[in-house]
Amino acid sequence: MNTHLRKYFRQEHLPHIWCPGCGNGIVTAAILRALDRLGWEKDRTVFVSGIGCSSRAPGYLDFNTLHTTHGRALVFATGVKVAHPNLNVVVITGDGDASAIGGNHLIHAARRNIDITTICFNNSIYGMTGGQYSPLSPTDSVASTAPFGNTDRSFDLCRLVEAAGASYVARGTTYHVTPLTKLIERGFEKRGFSFVEAITACPVYFGRRNKMRTPVEMLEWQKDAAVPITRAQKMDPEELAGKFVIGTFVDIDMPEYTESYERLLREHASDRGGG
């Protein structure tokens, strides 16, 4: 293992439980490289996750870690951040965890613009429970609960988070791992709610059912289907069918929740004092 990254792992728990070729490890390593570049200290960093294969990532990381309940990682993370605004708080969540059961929490964390970085591992499926479709499964893709193809429209979660009011929104893939690492790093740096969707592979439950037999074919798909935002802006919706856009969608400065809250407390300190 890379000597720079070794110190961030709970070595005794490796090799990890993820299947051969599962992209979760690629995203996890990108997260560690990003925080290593920023010099984040382990004791000042908290990883919070929900439930799912992806949500197991914090179990391998030698930081303050909180493995919570399905869809609720942002609720616990909000509590941590409000209690200790100086900590770096990172949420790791799956596409199902973030958009289905946890969708409401995602909207309101973005609306508050609380300084949490959320990394959504989007593998297009519920991996842990055997490949049921999620709100992010592409239309027509095959899932255990959609054996003839998924009739739902697929959610563009980045647009949801942008509309809800986040300061930073971006999407990358595990194939484009160097840009993905930079997007995560920028999300970490940003004061406010940051959301990075990482397109990643579940070769076992998504790939095999959708004509991508190997992890390598899944990365080829990411390479071919990803369109950088600058190019996408010049393309028609028809040309973009079956593709997804990668890059930075939002990077703006807006009032951050814990700062606004602290200011309120300061302003009213005399009201409370001595009482």
């Binding site: 293992m1 490796l14 090799p15 599962c22 490890g25 990108a30 595990t174 194939y175 791992v177």
Partner: peptide, 13 residues
């Protein structure tokens, strides 16, 4: 370093 960055198992340096 692409092999190292894309290895899902932290197995390459």
């Amino acid at each position: 370093r692409m092999c190292e960055f894309r290895c899902p198992d932290f197995a390459i340096v």
